[in-house]
Design a protein around this nucleic acid. Structure first.
Length: 235
DNA sequence: CGACTTTGACCAGCGC
DNA sequence: GCGCTGGTCAAAGTCG
């Protein structure tokens, strides 16, 4: 895992004057089930956007937990023995299990959005607007801004690139990826900002219908051990 | 040989 | 209707 970012969060539709919502800071992960937590979005098409990244208190993802997108994945099937826990309904919070607990701050010197940021927000706004007219088309979208030298962030899933386009007002092309899992049609778009070339904007569209492979790889020995320790003992 | 990337072509939506 | 733009397709190429 090579993400080094300090995301902020605001909900789609929020205007520039409204300060972004600080991301709720979760407790340290104490239960593997947190790894399958899902974001609690106010509406099916609302989007999470991590806007200007603050340098003041960088969040660091734990190296032994690979699942960033797993936050937005469907819970695994229960027969696997992994309990299903989604978001914290009582506190209406998004659980961010893979993040260390560093308080999130809003950047004081936030700058005007770049053309790419404006385009991305416009695109999401249009998508939300059109889908509000047609409620059947409810594909959740999540937008991350991450400060990383790598275009491709290791989010634990396998992706197949199916297109690349140069985008207006951007000197960097936008890449289009689909989840390689045969039954999963989650897509993501990756684009580097020309205003700040250290920032990569990743847009996830859809929800994985399978557990994160790398995560399961990491967890399976642990789960086997738990199952062994909690097995019924014959007297 | 299978999985993946590259890249030009095609198509749909939107604004004028 | 036309042109622009973004998203997807699919054939060819690459890699392990």
């Amino acid at each position: 895992m090579n993400l080094r970012s300090s995301p902020l969060l605001f909900m789609e539709g929020q205007d520039q004057e409204t300060p972004p919502l600080p991301l709720p800071v979760p407790s340290p992960p104490t239960n593997p089930s947190f790894l399958f937590a899902q974001p609690h979005l106010p509406s099916p098409n609302s989007s999470l956007i991590f806007p200007n990244i603050s340098h003041s208190q960088p969040l660091v993802l734990q190296d032994n937990l690979h699942d960033l997108v797993g936050l937005f994945s469907a819970p695994p099937p229960t027969p696997s023995g992994i309990p299903n826990i989604a978001h914290d309904n009582t506190n209406d919070q998004i659980m961010m299990p893979s993040l260390e607990t560093a308080p999130l701050t809003i950047s004081d010197n936030a700058v005007a959005p770049s053309p790419e940021e404006v385009a991305i927000k416009d695109k999401i706004r249009r998508a939300a607007s059109s889908s509000s007219k047609n409620r059947k088309n409810t594909v959740p979208k999540v937008v991350f801004q991450t400060r990383s030298p790598d275009d491709i962030l290791d989010d634990g899933y396998r992706w197949r690139k199916y297109g690349q386009k140069s985008v207006k007002n951007s000197k960097y092309p936008r890449s289009y990826y689909r989840c390689s899992h045969h039954t999963c049609n989650v897509k993501k778009q990756v684009q580097r900002l020309s205003k700040d070339t250290s920032i990569v904007v990743t847009t996830y569209e859809g929800i994985h219908n399978h557990p994160c492979e790398k995560l399961m790889e990491t967890l399976s020995p642990l789960l086997e051990q738990i199952q062994f320790l909690t097995r019924p003992v014959l007297m």
